[in-house]
Design a protein around this nucleic acid. Structure first.
Lengths: 254, 254
DNA sequence: GGTAGGAACTGGTCTAGATGACTTGACCAG
DNA sequence: CTGGTCAAGTCATCTAGACCAGTTCCTACC
Protein backbone atom coordinates (compact mmCIF):
# COMPACT_ATOMS: atom_id res chain seq x y z
CA UNK A 1 0.00 0.00 0.00
CA UNK A 2 2.03 2.79 1.39
CA UNK A 3 5.04 2.34 -0.80
CA UNK A 4 7.58 4.21 1.25
CA UNK A 5 10.26 3.73 -1.31
CA UNK A 6 12.65 6.58 -1.21
CA UNK A 7 15.82 5.71 -2.86
CA UNK A 8 14.94 2.16 -3.54
CA UNK A 9 14.49 3.30 -7.09
CA UNK A 10 17.46 2.06 -8.95
CA UNK A 11 18.03 5.00 -11.23
CA UNK A 12 18.00 7.31 -8.23
CA UNK A 13 20.65 5.19 -6.58
CA UNK A 14 22.82 5.47 -9.64
CA UNK A 15 22.08 9.16 -10.04
CA UNK A 16 22.93 9.94 -6.45
CA UNK A 17 26.07 7.86 -6.65
CA UNK A 18 27.20 9.91 -9.60
CA UNK A 19 26.27 13.15 -7.95
CA UNK A 20 28.27 12.27 -4.89
CA UNK A 21 31.17 11.29 -7.09
CA UNK A 22 31.08 14.64 -8.86
CA UNK A 23 30.76 16.56 -5.64
CA UNK A 24 33.53 14.76 -3.82
CA UNK A 25 36.17 13.14 -5.98
CA UNK A 26 35.95 14.45 -9.49
CA UNK A 27 36.80 17.77 -11.01
CA UNK A 28 35.62 19.58 -14.10
CA UNK A 29 36.42 17.62 -17.21
CA UNK A 30 37.02 14.31 -15.45
CA UNK A 31 35.25 11.35 -16.96
CA UNK A 32 32.67 9.44 -14.98
CA UNK A 33 32.49 5.66 -15.28
CA UNK A 34 31.11 4.53 -18.62
CA UNK A 35 27.49 3.53 -18.85
CA UNK A 36 28.36 -0.11 -19.27
CA UNK A 37 30.62 -0.01 -16.23
CA UNK A 38 27.79 1.39 -14.19
CA UNK A 39 25.49 -1.34 -15.45
CA UNK A 40 27.84 -3.92 -14.03
CA UNK A 41 28.57 -2.13 -10.79
CA UNK A 42 24.92 -1.64 -9.94
CA UNK A 43 23.59 -4.72 -11.65
CA UNK A 44 21.08 -2.77 -13.67
CA UNK A 45 20.32 -2.44 -17.34
CA UNK A 46 21.72 0.14 -19.63
CA UNK A 47 18.43 2.01 -19.92
CA UNK A 48 18.36 2.48 -16.18
CA UNK A 49 21.84 3.89 -16.13
CA UNK A 50 20.94 6.20 -18.98
CA UNK A 51 17.97 7.47 -17.03
CA UNK A 52 20.28 8.39 -14.19
CA UNK A 53 22.83 10.04 -16.43
CA UNK A 54 20.12 11.82 -18.39
CA UNK A 55 18.91 13.50 -15.24
CA UNK A 56 22.36 14.83 -14.47
CA UNK A 57 22.91 15.96 -18.03
CA UNK A 58 19.68 17.92 -17.93
CA UNK A 59 20.82 19.47 -14.68
CA UNK A 60 24.04 20.51 -16.32
CA UNK A 61 26.17 18.40 -14.01
CA UNK A 62 27.44 16.04 -16.69
CA UNK A 63 28.16 16.26 -20.40
CA UNK A 64 28.08 13.39 -22.82
CA UNK A 65 30.43 13.07 -25.76
CA UNK A 66 29.66 10.33 -28.17
CA UNK A 67 32.54 7.99 -28.66
CA UNK A 68 34.53 9.43 -25.77
CA UNK A 69 32.52 9.24 -22.62
CA UNK A 70 30.62 11.29 -20.11
CA UNK A 71 32.37 14.06 -18.25
CA UNK A 72 31.90 16.43 -15.37
CA UNK A 73 30.53 19.63 -16.86
CA UNK A 74 32.24 22.93 -16.14
CA UNK A 75 30.45 24.88 -13.43
CA UNK A 76 28.22 27.21 -15.33
CA UNK A 77 27.35 30.72 -14.60
CA UNK A 78 23.94 30.52 -13.12
CA UNK A 79 21.88 32.09 -15.84
CA UNK A 80 18.79 32.10 -13.75
CA UNK A 81 18.50 35.43 -12.00
CA UNK A 82 18.07 34.77 -8.34
CA UNK A 83 15.55 36.22 -6.00
CA UNK A 84 17.98 37.30 -3.34
CA UNK A 85 17.33 39.44 -0.35
CA UNK A 86 19.31 42.63 0.08
CA UNK A 87 21.40 40.99 2.77
CA UNK A 88 22.26 38.01 0.56
CA UNK A 89 23.04 40.32 -2.29
CA UNK A 90 25.44 42.50 -0.30
CA UNK A 91 27.10 39.51 1.29
CA UNK A 92 27.72 38.15 -2.16
CA UNK A 93 29.50 41.39 -2.98
CA UNK A 94 31.63 41.18 0.09
CA UNK A 95 29.95 44.04 1.86
CA UNK A 96 28.26 44.21 5.19
CA UNK A 97 24.57 44.77 4.93
CA UNK A 98 22.79 46.96 7.41
CA UNK A 99 19.31 48.28 7.78
CA UNK A 100 17.66 51.15 9.56
CA UNK A 101 13.93 50.94 9.98
CA UNK A 102 12.42 54.36 9.37
CA UNK A 103 8.87 53.27 10.01
CA UNK A 104 6.87 50.09 10.39
CA UNK A 105 3.14 49.72 10.65
CA UNK A 106 -0.11 49.01 8.91
CA UNK A 107 -1.61 50.88 6.02
CA UNK A 108 -4.52 50.39 3.65
CA UNK A 109 -3.55 49.44 0.14
CA UNK A 110 -3.32 52.29 -2.34
CA UNK A 111 -4.54 51.47 -5.80
CA UNK A 112 -1.20 50.82 -7.47
CA UNK A 113 0.11 48.80 -4.54
CA UNK A 114 -3.12 46.81 -4.38
CA UNK A 115 -2.84 46.03 -8.04
CA UNK A 116 0.75 44.88 -7.71
CA UNK A 117 -0.13 42.60 -4.80
CA UNK A 118 -3.36 41.49 -6.41
CA UNK A 119 -5.45 42.43 -3.39
CA UNK A 120 -8.46 44.71 -3.04
CA UNK A 121 -7.73 48.43 -2.66
CA UNK A 122 -7.94 49.42 0.99
CA UNK A 123 -6.97 45.97 2.24
CA UNK A 124 -4.79 46.02 5.29
CA UNK A 125 -1.09 45.88 4.50
CA UNK A 126 2.08 45.82 6.48
CA UNK A 127 4.25 48.71 5.42
CA UNK A 128 7.95 49.02 6.11
CA UNK A 129 10.09 51.98 5.26
CA UNK A 130 13.74 51.21 5.56
CA UNK A 131 17.15 52.56 4.75
CA UNK A 132 19.52 49.94 3.41
CA UNK A 133 23.16 50.26 4.33
CA UNK A 134 26.24 48.65 2.87
CA UNK A 135 29.40 48.91 4.92
CA UNK A 136 27.53 51.45 7.05
CA UNK A 137 26.97 53.80 4.13
CA UNK A 138 23.48 54.46 2.76
CA UNK A 139 22.79 52.36 -0.29
CA UNK A 140 19.08 52.42 -0.91
CA UNK A 141 15.75 53.59 0.38
CA UNK A 142 13.08 50.97 0.37
CA UNK A 143 9.36 50.73 0.83
CA UNK A 144 7.94 47.27 1.37
CA UNK A 145 4.33 46.17 1.45
CA UNK A 146 3.02 42.78 2.55
CA UNK A 147 -0.52 41.47 2.91
CA UNK A 148 -1.25 41.65 6.64
CA UNK A 149 -3.94 39.01 6.42
CA UNK A 150 -1.48 36.34 5.43
CA UNK A 151 1.08 37.28 8.05
CA UNK A 152 -0.61 37.36 11.46
CA UNK A 153 1.64 38.57 14.22
CA UNK A 154 4.25 39.84 11.80
CA UNK A 155 4.69 43.15 13.57
CA UNK A 156 4.15 41.87 17.10
CA UNK A 157 7.18 42.48 19.22
CA UNK A 158 10.31 43.73 17.50
CA UNK A 159 10.35 44.64 13.84
CA UNK A 160 11.65 41.57 12.03
CA UNK A 161 15.31 41.78 11.15
CA UNK A 162 14.65 40.33 7.73
CA UNK A 163 11.43 40.01 5.85
CA UNK A 164 12.65 36.92 4.08
CA UNK A 165 13.62 35.18 7.29
CA UNK A 166 10.17 35.88 8.62
CA UNK A 167 8.52 34.62 5.45
CA UNK A 168 10.65 31.51 5.59
CA UNK A 169 9.49 30.79 9.11
CA UNK A 170 5.93 30.76 7.83
CA UNK A 171 6.70 28.63 4.79
CA UNK A 172 6.01 31.54 2.50
CA UNK A 173 9.39 31.91 0.85
CA UNK A 174 8.79 33.35 -2.60
CA UNK A 175 9.63 31.04 -5.45
CA UNK A 176 9.48 33.55 -8.25
CA UNK A 177 9.08 37.20 -8.85
CA UNK A 178 9.66 40.05 -11.20
CA UNK A 179 11.70 43.19 -11.05
CA UNK A 180 11.04 46.30 -13.03
CA UNK A 181 14.00 48.57 -13.33
CA UNK A 182 14.39 52.12 -14.41
CA UNK A 183 16.35 55.23 -13.72
CA UNK A 184 14.98 58.22 -11.87
CA UNK A 185 15.92 61.32 -9.98
CA UNK A 186 16.25 61.32 -6.24
CA UNK A 187 13.56 63.34 -4.53
CA UNK A 188 14.33 65.44 -1.47
CA UNK A 189 13.62 62.75 1.08
CA UNK A 190 15.60 60.12 -0.77
CA UNK A 191 18.47 62.50 -1.34
CA UNK A 192 18.67 63.32 2.34
CA UNK A 193 18.62 59.70 3.36
CA UNK A 194 21.12 58.59 0.72
CA UNK A 195 23.48 61.53 1.26
CA UNK A 196 23.26 62.64 -2.34
CA UNK A 197 21.90 65.76 -3.99
CA UNK A 198 18.26 65.93 -5.03
CA UNK A 199 17.86 65.27 -8.73
CA UNK A 200 20.85 62.94 -8.89
CA UNK A 201 20.14 59.68 -10.68
CA UNK A 202 18.97 56.66 -8.73
CA UNK A 203 18.28 53.16 -9.88
CA UNK A 204 14.68 52.30 -9.08
CA UNK A 205 13.80 48.67 -8.67
CA UNK A 206 10.27 47.51 -8.04
CA UNK A 207 9.97 43.92 -6.99
CA UNK A 208 6.98 41.67 -6.80
CA UNK A 209 7.60 38.34 -5.16
CA UNK A 210 5.24 35.41 -5.37
CA UNK A 211 4.69 32.28 -3.36
CA UNK A 212 2.91 30.00 -5.78
CA UNK A 213 0.16 32.04 -7.36
CA UNK A 214 -0.19 34.79 -4.84
CA UNK A 215 1.92 37.87 -4.40
CA UNK A 216 3.51 38.00 -0.96
CA UNK A 217 5.68 41.08 -1.19
CA UNK A 218 5.91 44.28 -3.15
CA UNK A 219 8.77 46.68 -2.74
CA UNK A 220 10.13 49.82 -4.29
CA UNK A 221 13.74 50.69 -3.84
CA UNK A 222 15.86 53.61 -4.90
CA UNK A 223 19.55 52.74 -5.11
CA UNK A 224 22.39 55.22 -5.19
CA UNK A 225 23.66 54.82 -8.72
CA UNK A 226 27.19 55.74 -7.71
CA UNK A 227 27.40 52.74 -5.42
CA UNK A 228 25.18 50.14 -6.96
CA UNK A 229 25.34 48.35 -10.28
CA UNK A 230 22.97 45.57 -11.11
CA UNK A 231 24.41 42.53 -12.80
CA UNK A 232 22.13 40.35 -14.84
CA UNK A 233 23.20 37.14 -16.52
CA UNK A 234 21.32 36.53 -19.71
CA UNK A 235 20.63 33.38 -21.65
CA UNK A 236 19.65 32.45 -25.12
CA UNK A 237 16.91 29.89 -25.07
CA UNK A 238 18.45 26.47 -25.21
CA UNK A 239 18.26 25.52 -28.89
CA UNK A 240 17.03 22.06 -28.05
CA UNK A 241 14.51 23.74 -25.89
CA UNK A 242 12.08 25.04 -28.30
CA UNK A 243 9.87 27.89 -29.32
CA UNK A 244 8.54 30.39 -26.86
CA UNK A 245 5.49 29.02 -25.18
CA UNK A 246 2.42 30.81 -26.43
CA UNK A 247 4.11 34.14 -26.01
CA UNK A 248 3.10 35.45 -22.56
CA UNK A 249 4.12 39.05 -22.84
CA UNK A 250 4.50 40.08 -19.28
CA UNK A 251 5.72 43.48 -19.23
CA UNK A 252 5.78 46.98 -18.35
CA UNK A 253 4.53 48.58 -21.49
CA UNK A 254 6.11 51.64 -20.04
CA UNK B 1 28.68 8.70 -44.00
CA UNK B 2 27.30 12.14 -43.81
CA UNK B 3 24.07 11.13 -42.21
CA UNK B 4 22.01 14.13 -43.03
CA UNK B 5 19.21 12.77 -40.97
CA UNK B 6 16.87 15.48 -39.97
CA UNK B 7 13.96 13.95 -38.25
CA UNK B 8 14.57 10.44 -39.28
CA UNK B 9 15.12 9.72 -35.63
CA UNK B 10 11.96 8.17 -34.38
CA UNK B 11 11.76 9.84 -31.02
CA UNK B 12 12.22 13.20 -32.67
CA UNK B 13 9.35 12.46 -35.00
CA UNK B 14 7.14 11.65 -32.07
CA UNK B 15 8.38 14.63 -30.10
CA UNK B 16 7.79 17.04 -32.93
CA UNK B 17 4.39 15.56 -33.60
CA UNK B 18 3.41 16.20 -30.00
CA UNK B 19 4.88 19.66 -30.06
CA UNK B 20 2.88 20.55 -33.13
CA UNK B 21 -0.22 19.11 -31.52
CA UNK B 22 0.27 21.26 -28.45
CA UNK B 23 0.98 24.38 -30.46
CA UNK B 24 -1.91 23.97 -32.85
CA UNK B 25 -4.82 21.93 -31.59
CA UNK B 26 -4.57 21.47 -27.88
CA UNK B 27 -5.02 23.85 -25.02
CA UNK B 28 -3.72 23.95 -21.49
CA UNK B 29 -4.90 20.93 -19.56
CA UNK B 30 -5.88 18.87 -22.57
CA UNK B 31 -4.60 15.32 -22.57
CA UNK B 32 -2.24 14.16 -25.27
CA UNK B 33 -2.59 10.66 -26.71
CA UNK B 34 -1.52 7.96 -24.28
CA UNK B 35 1.91 6.46 -24.61
CA UNK B 36 0.51 3.20 -25.87
CA UNK B 37 -1.56 4.98 -28.45
CA UNK B 38 1.52 6.74 -29.71
CA UNK B 39 3.37 3.43 -29.85
CA UNK B 40 0.73 2.12 -32.20
CA UNK B 41 0.37 5.23 -34.27
CA UNK B 42 4.08 5.55 -34.93
CA UNK B 43 4.93 1.89 -34.81
CA UNK B 44 7.60 2.37 -32.17
CA UNK B 45 8.24 0.89 -28.77
CA UNK B 46 7.17 2.35 -25.51
CA UNK B 47 10.67 3.46 -24.53
CA UNK B 48 10.91 5.49 -27.66
CA UNK B 49 7.66 7.24 -26.99
CA UNK B 50 8.77 7.91 -23.44
CA UNK B 51 11.95 9.47 -24.67
CA UNK B 52 9.90 11.88 -26.76
CA UNK B 53 7.50 12.69 -23.95
CA UNK B 54 10.34 13.03 -21.46
CA UNK B 55 11.91 15.74 -23.56
CA UNK B 56 8.71 17.75 -23.58
CA UNK B 57 8.19 17.25 -19.87
CA UNK B 58 11.67 18.57 -19.18
CA UNK B 59 10.90 21.55 -21.37
CA UNK B 60 7.76 22.19 -19.38
CA UNK B 61 5.48 21.65 -22.35
CA UNK B 62 3.78 18.56 -20.93
CA UNK B 63 2.97 17.23 -17.50
CA UNK B 64 2.58 13.61 -16.60
CA UNK B 65 0.08 12.41 -14.05
CA UNK B 66 0.45 8.83 -13.04
CA UNK B 67 -2.72 6.89 -13.57
CA UNK B 68 -4.42 9.63 -15.54
CA UNK B 69 -2.39 10.57 -18.53
CA UNK B 70 -0.15 13.25 -19.92
CA UNK B 71 -1.42 16.77 -20.29
CA UNK B 72 -0.54 20.08 -21.83
CA UNK B 73 1.20 22.10 -19.12
CA UNK B 74 0.03 25.59 -18.28
CA UNK B 75 2.12 28.22 -20.02
CA UNK B 76 4.77 29.30 -17.61
CA UNK B 77 6.29 32.65 -17.28
CA UNK B 78 9.69 32.35 -18.83
CA UNK B 79 12.02 32.93 -15.93
CA UNK B 80 15.09 32.86 -18.09
CA UNK B 81 16.08 36.34 -19.06
CA UNK B 82 16.45 36.42 -22.78
CA UNK B 83 19.26 37.85 -24.81
CA UNK B 84 17.10 39.79 -27.20
CA UNK B 85 18.19 42.32 -29.74
CA UNK B 86 16.77 45.79 -29.50
CA UNK B 87 14.48 45.08 -32.41
CA UNK B 88 13.12 41.90 -30.84
CA UNK B 89 12.67 43.70 -27.57
CA UNK B 90 10.70 46.58 -29.05
CA UNK B 91 8.60 44.28 -31.19
CA UNK B 92 7.71 42.35 -28.09
CA UNK B 93 6.45 45.59 -26.59
CA UNK B 94 4.37 46.34 -29.63
CA UNK B 95 6.54 49.21 -30.79
CA UNK B 96 8.27 49.76 -34.08
CA UNK B 97 12.02 49.65 -33.77
CA UNK B 98 14.16 51.95 -35.81
CA UNK B 99 17.82 52.72 -35.95
CA UNK B 100 19.95 55.58 -37.17
CA UNK B 101 23.60 54.87 -37.70
CA UNK B 102 25.64 57.79 -36.45
CA UNK B 103 28.96 56.28 -37.35
CA UNK B 104 30.41 52.97 -38.36
CA UNK B 105 34.04 52.06 -38.75
CA UNK B 106 37.09 50.50 -37.24
CA UNK B 107 38.83 51.50 -34.06
CA UNK B 108 41.59 50.08 -31.88
CA UNK B 109 40.39 48.62 -28.60
CA UNK B 110 40.59 50.94 -25.62
CA UNK B 111 41.61 49.29 -22.39
CA UNK B 112 38.20 48.87 -20.86
CA UNK B 113 36.64 47.70 -24.10
CA UNK B 114 39.48 45.27 -24.69
CA UNK B 115 39.00 43.86 -21.23
CA UNK B 116 35.29 43.39 -21.74
CA UNK B 117 35.82 41.60 -25.05
CA UNK B 118 38.80 39.69 -23.74
CA UNK B 119 41.07 40.85 -26.54
CA UNK B 120 44.43 42.64 -26.49
CA UNK B 121 44.33 46.42 -26.14
CA UNK B 122 44.76 48.06 -29.53
CA UNK B 123 43.25 45.14 -31.40
CA UNK B 124 41.15 46.15 -34.36
CA UNK B 125 37.48 46.46 -33.54
CA UNK B 126 34.37 47.29 -35.45
CA UNK B 127 32.69 50.23 -33.81
CA UNK B 128 29.10 51.27 -34.36
CA UNK B 129 27.46 54.32 -32.92
CA UNK B 130 23.73 54.21 -33.32
CA UNK B 131 20.59 55.93 -32.21
CA UNK B 132 17.81 53.53 -31.37
CA UNK B 133 14.28 54.60 -32.15
CA UNK B 134 10.97 53.25 -30.98
CA UNK B 135 7.91 54.42 -32.88
CA UNK B 136 10.19 56.99 -34.49
CA UNK B 137 11.08 58.58 -31.19
CA UNK B 138 14.61 58.40 -29.79
CA UNK B 139 14.89 55.64 -27.21
CA UNK B 140 18.57 55.01 -26.65
CA UNK B 141 22.07 55.84 -27.75
CA UNK B 142 24.27 52.87 -28.27
CA UNK B 143 27.92 52.11 -28.85
CA UNK B 144 28.74 48.64 -30.06
CA UNK B 145 32.13 47.00 -30.41
CA UNK B 146 32.87 43.74 -32.17
CA UNK B 147 36.17 41.98 -32.84
CA UNK B 148 36.96 42.77 -36.47
CA UNK B 149 39.17 39.73 -36.83
CA UNK B 150 36.29 37.36 -36.32
CA UNK B 151 33.98 39.21 -38.67
CA UNK B 152 35.70 39.69 -42.02
CA UNK B 153 33.71 41.77 -44.46
CA UNK B 154 31.30 42.93 -41.78
CA UNK B 155 31.47 46.55 -42.87
CA UNK B 156 31.85 45.93 -46.58
CA UNK B 157 28.99 47.45 -48.49
CA UNK B 158 26.08 48.80 -46.52
CA UNK B 159 26.15 48.97 -42.77
CA UNK B 160 24.33 45.86 -41.57
CA UNK B 161 20.74 46.47 -40.63
CA UNK B 162 21.11 44.30 -37.57
CA UNK B 163 24.21 43.10 -35.80
CA UNK B 164 22.45 39.96 -34.66
CA UNK B 165 21.27 39.07 -38.14
CA UNK B 166 24.81 39.47 -39.36
CA UNK B 167 26.17 37.34 -36.53
CA UNK B 168 23.54 34.72 -37.23
CA UNK B 169 24.64 34.53 -40.85
CA UNK B 170 28.12 33.66 -39.63
CA UNK B 171 26.95 31.13 -37.10
CA UNK B 172 28.06 33.38 -34.28
CA UNK B 173 24.76 33.95 -32.54
CA UNK B 174 25.54 34.58 -28.87
CA UNK B 175 24.26 31.93 -26.51
CA UNK B 176 24.77 33.78 -23.29
CA UNK B 177 25.77 37.11 -21.98
CA UNK B 178 25.64 39.50 -19.10
CA UNK B 179 24.14 42.91 -18.61
CA UNK B 180 25.28 45.41 -16.07
CA UNK B 181 22.74 48.03 -15.30
CA UNK B 182 22.92 51.33 -13.54
CA UNK B 183 21.51 54.80 -13.61
CA UNK B 184 23.39 57.81 -14.84
CA UNK B 185 22.99 61.34 -16.09
CA UNK B 186 22.72 62.13 -19.77
CA UNK B 187 25.73 63.99 -21.08
CA UNK B 188 25.37 66.73 -23.64
CA UNK B 189 25.68 64.51 -26.68
CA UNK B 190 23.27 61.93 -25.35
CA UNK B 191 20.83 64.59 -24.29
CA UNK B 192 20.79 66.13 -27.71
CA UNK B 193 20.27 62.81 -29.45
CA UNK B 194 17.60 61.64 -27.03
CA UNK B 195 15.76 64.95 -26.93
CA UNK B 196 16.08 65.29 -23.21
CA UNK B 197 17.89 67.75 -20.99
CA UNK B 198 21.50 67.14 -20.01
CA UNK B 199 21.70 65.71 -16.53
CA UNK B 200 18.40 63.91 -16.77
CA UNK B 201 18.56 60.30 -15.65
CA UNK B 202 19.25 57.57 -18.18
CA UNK B 203 19.34 53.83 -17.72
CA UNK B 204 22.75 52.59 -18.72
CA UNK B 205 23.04 49.01 -19.86
CA UNK B 206 26.34 47.42 -20.75
CA UNK B 207 26.06 44.12 -22.48
CA UNK B 208 28.64 41.49 -23.16
CA UNK B 209 27.49 38.68 -25.40
CA UNK B 210 29.33 35.42 -25.80
CA UNK B 211 29.38 32.71 -28.40
CA UNK B 212 30.70 29.75 -26.53
CA UNK B 213 33.73 30.94 -24.62
CA UNK B 214 34.59 34.05 -26.54
CA UNK B 215 33.03 37.46 -26.33
CA UNK B 216 31.54 38.51 -29.62
CA UNK B 217 29.91 41.80 -28.78
CA UNK B 218 30.19 44.54 -26.23
CA UNK B 219 27.77 47.42 -26.14
CA UNK B 220 26.93 50.37 -23.96
CA UNK B 221 23.50 51.89 -24.19
CA UNK B 222 21.86 54.85 -22.55
CA UNK B 223 18.08 54.58 -22.47
CA UNK B 224 15.69 57.42 -21.87
CA UNK B 225 14.32 56.56 -18.47
CA UNK B 226 10.99 58.21 -19.22
CA UNK B 227 10.35 55.79 -22.06
CA UNK B 228 12.08 52.61 -21.07
CA UNK B 229 11.56 50.26 -18.19
CA UNK B 230 13.44 47.03 -17.91
CA UNK B 231 11.48 44.01 -16.83
CA UNK B 232 13.34 41.13 -15.27
CA UNK B 233 11.73 37.87 -14.25
CA UNK B 234 13.40 36.37 -11.24
CA UNK B 235 13.49 32.80 -10.06
CA UNK B 236 14.27 30.88 -6.96
CA UNK B 237 16.39 27.92 -7.88
CA UNK B 238 14.08 25.10 -8.84
CA UNK B 239 14.08 22.74 -5.87
CA UNK B 240 13.78 19.66 -8.06
CA UNK B 241 16.64 20.87 -10.14
CA UNK B 242 19.50 20.25 -7.95
CA UNK B 243 21.68 21.81 -5.43
CA UNK B 244 24.08 24.53 -6.32
CA UNK B 245 27.12 22.92 -7.76
CA UNK B 246 29.60 21.66 -5.25
CA UNK B 247 27.81 22.32 -2.08
CA UNK B 248 24.52 21.14 -0.81
CA UNK B 249 23.07 17.74 -0.24
CA UNK B 250 20.92 16.45 -3.06
CA UNK B 251 17.57 15.54 -1.77
CA UNK B 252 15.01 14.61 0.55
CA UNK B 253 16.75 11.60 1.92
CA UNK B 254 13.66 11.05 3.88
C1' DG C 1 58.46 7.08 -41.18
C1' DG C 2 53.77 7.44 -42.60
C1' DT C 3 49.38 5.67 -43.34
C1' DA C 4 45.37 2.72 -43.85
C1' DG C 5 42.75 -0.45 -41.43
C1' DG C 6 40.59 -2.38 -37.79
C1' DA C 7 39.62 -3.58 -32.92
C1' DA C 8 37.79 -1.96 -28.84
C1' DC C 9 36.06 1.34 -26.57
C1' DT C 10 32.56 5.24 -25.94
C1' DG C 11 27.61 7.15 -26.14
C1' DG C 12 22.95 7.17 -29.28
C1' DT C 13 18.93 4.86 -30.65
C1' DC C 14 15.63 1.17 -30.44
C1' DT C 15 12.96 -3.25 -29.45
C1' DA C 16 9.55 -6.13 -27.05
C1' DG C 17 8.47 -7.38 -23.52
C1' DA C 18 7.68 -7.29 -17.79
C1' DT C 19 5.86 -5.59 -13.16
C1' DG C 20 4.10 -2.02 -10.15
C1' DA C 21 1.38 2.07 -8.72
C1' DC C 22 -2.27 5.19 -9.34
C1' DT C 23 -6.94 6.84 -11.19
C1' DT C 24 -11.33 6.23 -12.86
C1' DG C 25 -15.63 4.32 -13.39
C1' DA C 26 -18.75 0.51 -13.20
C1' DC C 27 -20.94 -2.46 -10.25
C1' DC C 28 -22.78 -4.25 -6.05
C1' DA C 29 -24.05 -4.54 -1.11
C1' DG C 30 -25.58 -2.17 2.75
C1' DC D 1 -27.20 7.48 -1.09
C1' DT D 2 -22.87 5.55 0.78
C1' DG D 3 -19.09 2.65 0.79
C1' DG D 4 -16.40 -1.23 -1.01
C1' DT D 5 -14.56 -4.13 -4.71
C1' DC D 6 -12.76 -4.83 -9.09
C1' DA D 7 -11.25 -4.16 -13.82
C1' DA D 8 -9.30 -1.36 -17.18
C1' DG D 9 -6.66 2.25 -18.35
C1' DT D 10 -2.82 5.29 -17.34
C1' DC D 11 2.14 6.39 -16.28
C1' DA D 12 6.69 4.60 -13.62
C1' DT D 13 10.25 1.64 -13.55
C1' DC D 14 13.11 -1.89 -15.37
C1' DT D 15 15.26 -5.77 -18.23
C1' DA D 16 18.40 -7.86 -21.64
C1' DG D 17 19.45 -7.64 -25.40
C1' DA D 18 20.36 -5.24 -30.52
C1' DC D 19 22.67 -2.23 -33.89
C1' DC D 20 24.53 2.43 -35.18
C1' DA D 21 27.94 6.16 -34.84
C1' DG D 22 31.80 8.52 -33.20
C1' DT D 23 36.79 8.17 -30.93
C1' DT D 24 41.03 6.22 -29.84
C1' DC D 25 44.79 3.57 -30.43
C1' DC D 26 47.50 -0.10 -32.09
C1' DT D 27 49.13 -2.81 -35.88
C1' DA D 28 50.43 -4.18 -40.30
C1' DC D 29 51.55 -2.71 -44.57
C1' DC D 30 53.83 0.42 -47.86
Amino acid sequence: MLSLRRSTLKYLQVRDYLRTLVLSELRTGDPVPSERMLCERFGVSRMTVRQAVDALVVEGVLERVQGRGTFVAPPKVDLQVRLASFTEEMTRRGMTAGVKVLSAGFAPAEHDIAEALKVAPGENLIHLHRLRLADDEPMAVEHTWLPAGRLPGFLDGAVPASVYVELDARGLIPDWGEDTIDAGEADHEEAKLLHIKPGKPVLRISRRAFTGDSAIEYSRSAFRSDRYTLWVPVARPNPSVVPRRRSVAPDATT
